[in-house]
Design a protein around this nucleic acid. Structure first.
Length: 682
DNA sequence: GAGTTTGAAACT
DNA sequence: CAGTTTCAAACTC
């Protein structure tokens, strides 16, 4: 873990202080004149300025800038708040303050955030003021901060220089009559390390991140899709559904991509090889977590965001899991708090993750705009074919080939937009697929007297609540990807399309479960004992357990034969999803947006890396496949529900009394309970 | 595109 | 909980 660089500035706790004083290095440091100290302050100022520096020239999106600021505020939070208040409190405090004021004043930052640069400790209260003014700052920075290291390399150099000098200052400080305790020293060193970690984040490769706790990678990967969707939202915001963009969600969405972009940019410029430690990933996890914490707290300033700072003291081993939990909390918080609004369905993100696994085109295709893959109540996302032309968003968003490709595919898919066609339900009943999927109806819908629109948000929410009060699982995913316990329960143990099951089961009489009237068939899953269908011939798996999908091609042939082109699309999508089920990216798509990882089977099945990446970390994993959803391009309704996962009508199969089912239920409960008070009554 | 069929959702 | 009605998607022509 200790890099040569780090060891240089990291004294041994015991007897190191006296040795330090006798060391040549120390003498050299001791010989440093106050000018040097002032210089350090300058550097510190430079860093502070740097901290505010926004690459907004590259990413002009205000929201991105917002994130930028919030993100860098993390640095300041860790570094400036810590070092500024400590280092600057040294003998050269006044000079430093003046320098800081001067530099900040030049950049217009000081005025914006006087507390951030003050050394009176007020910087600890950074959040509110800083966050409140992010937008302004974001706009202001590009022009005002240009003189300050704009390139990542410059930034890094500045940071390196700063760290060196601040380290020296600390050393010097250490020998002062007012020596601090070793704990303080350690703490200070930790702050340096944190800062360095933050810098390392900018250099780390996605794959490296993935090797860690994973969440970072997820966020990073997810960013590209978010970028596109964010763009969509931006575009939409000019249109009729402007209100549909939830501010918080938008912030988050825009932040994430920016985070990724920033990483990407820095990756391109980053030097390789430095700060490579065995524990780097853990450190990264911490750093990123801190960042994330700040990001989220920035985007949702009114939300209780748990910080990971305390975790730094934890054992590395436990840290990851704890971080995952906390990240989950954040993510849930993020989603749940912003009640209905629109944004990108976070659950859909993994489906088009890039990097770790190239997105499967079918999967991508299945992720039509506006669809709501989620099963988490989370939800968020959204895009929509409402503004297909808007795909792309900021210029920076579609610079990379990956984004271009996504853009292309999104646009391509948008051509096949399909909406609800409700005539009498006002789109406020589960008859309406949009409503059922937690989406607002949008222009392409052919519905009449539609109330499922943002302007009727209250009504929508009330209706939704009402429905949920009647059936808490009404908005839960209908179909779950069954793994492990479910398969055991069903006496199957394969991962064919039949391995997923409709929670409630179908009730087909005439379609023989061979047409899309059958929800099981439509979802591309086999029938299960839960089904009450008659003459089941479900090509994905019959109720009696005769799964034809794998035995011969007859089943799928029947599917394709019966299904229209669109149907085939769904099926193909499903098949591809199956093919990629091993990917950390959940391929299943849920119709409901009600839950977070509400299918414990999935959550629990991927207990190792995969889990850490998606289940624990992202906690927004679509597990259910409901091709129906794929047809939706409605703006998603961000709703949180307390609904337990699964079926609308709970007709548990007989086997659910089994012990395995009991275990499943327990898992389910544990993972379904929102970390924060539910918006809806249980 | 209109009409029919189908099964889920809603209602009683 | 069961039966009926309503509803909208799927399907057919």
């Amino acid at each position: 873990m200790d890099t040569p660089h780090k060891t240089q500035i990291t004294p041994t706790p015991t007897s190191s202080l006296s040795k330090f004083e006798d060391s040549p290095v120390f003498k050299y440091i001791d010989s440093l004149s106050p000018i040097e100290q002032a210089k350090s302050s300058q550097t510190d100022n430079a860093f502070n300025s740097l901290a505010f520096l926004s690459p907004s020239s590259l990413f002009p999106s205000p929201q991105i800038n917002c994130h930028r600021e919030s993100r860098f505020s993390v640095k300041r939070h860790h570094f400036s708040a810590d070092l500024s208040t400590r280092v600057l409190q040294s003998s050269n405090e006044s000079n430093a303050s003046q320098e800081a004021s001067k530099a900040a004043g030049q950049s217009g930052l000081y005025d914006e955030h006087p507390g951030c640069l003050s050394n009176d400790g007020s910087s600890k209260g950074i959040s509110s003021d800083l966050f409140d003014k992010q937008s302004d700052l974001a706009v202001e920075l590009p022009g005002t901060s240009k003189y300050d290291c704009r390139s990542p390399d410059d930034n890094l150099e500045a940071c390196d220089a700063l760290l060196k000098k601040t380290s020296l200052e600390v050393v010097e400080q250490e020998r002062s009559p007012f020596q601090r305790s070793r704990d303080e020293w350690k703490e200070r060193q930790r702050s340096f390390e944190n800062e360095r970690d933050l810098r390392k984040i900018r250099r780390i490769k996605p794959s490296e991140e993935a090797a860690g706790c994973g969440w970072v990678a997820v966020v990073s990967d997810v960013a590209d899709m978010l970028t596109v969707n964010t763009s969509i939202i931006h575009e939409n915001s000019d249109g009729q559904d402007q209100r549909t963009v939830d501010s918080g969600t938008t912030s988050f969405i825009s932040n994430i991509p920016e985070f990724s972009l920033d990483n990407a940019n820095n990756l391109e410029n980053a030097e390789s090889g430095d700060h490579q430690g065995s524990c780097k990933q853990n450190e990264l996890g911490d750093s990123v977590t801190d960042q994330t914490s700040c990001i989220l707290s920035t985007c949702l300033p009114d939300k209780p965001v748990v910080t990971d700072s305390s975790l730094k003291k934890d054992d590395k081993g436990e840290k990851c899991s704890q971080l995952s939990r906390q990240r989950s909390i954040r993510r849930r918080c993020l989603v749940f708090e912003k009640s209905p609004g629109f944004g990108l369905h976070l659950n859909s993100l993994p489906n088009i993750l890039k990097g770790q696994n190239p997105p499967n085109k079918s999967i991508l295709s299945s992720m039509k705009m506006g669809e709501v893959p989620s099963d988490n109540g989370t939800v968020v996302i959204e895009s929509s074919c409402e503004a297909p032309a808007s795909v792309g968003g900021t210029d920076a968003d579609h610079n990379t080939p990956e984004k271009k490709r996504q853009k292309f595919e999104l646009v391509e898919e948008s051509a096949s937009c399909k909406r609800c066609n409700c005539k009498r339900s006002k789109c406020l009943k589960l008859y309406c697929d949009c409503f059922a999927a937690g989406l607002y109806c949008i222009e392409p819908c052919s519905c009449l007297d539609c109330f499922n629109k943002p302007i009727h948000e209250k009504m929508v929410l009330e209706t939704r609540k009402q429905i949920e009060s009647r059936n808490p699982q009404a908005f839960a995913p209908k179909v779950i990807r069954s793994t492990d316990s479910v398969l055991d329960t069903w006496g199957e143990n394969n991962k064919t399309p039949a391995s997923a099951r409709h929670k409630r089961g179908c009730n087909c009489r005439k379609s023989s479960c061979l047409k899309k009237y059958c929800e099981c068939f439509q979802a591309g899953v086999g029938c299960s004992p839960s089904c009450r269908c008659e003459g089941c011939k479900n090509s994905f798996g019959r109720k009696d357990g005769c799964d034809e999908s794998g035995s011969d091609g007859e089943g799928l042939e029947a599917c394709e034969k019966n299904a229209s082109d669109k149907n085939s699309h769904d099926i193909v999508t499903h098949k591809n999803a199956e093919e990629h089920r091993d990917l950390p990216v959940p391929s299943n798509i849920s119709r409901s947006s009600s839950q977070l990882c509400n299918t414990p089977e999935h959550c629990s099945s991927e207990s190792s890396l995969g889990q850490s990446k998606f289940n624990s970390n992202l906690q927004a994993i679509p597990e259910d496949e409901t091709p129906k959803v794929l047809k939706h391009k409605c703006l998603p309704l961000i709703l949180k529900t307390n609904s337990p996962p699964n079926s609308k009508r709970v007709s548990p199969p007989h086997h659910e009394c089994s012990s395995s089912t009991a275990q499943r239920s327990r898992k389910l409960i544990l993972k379904s309970i929102p970390s924060f008070p539910s918006f809806c009554p249980p």
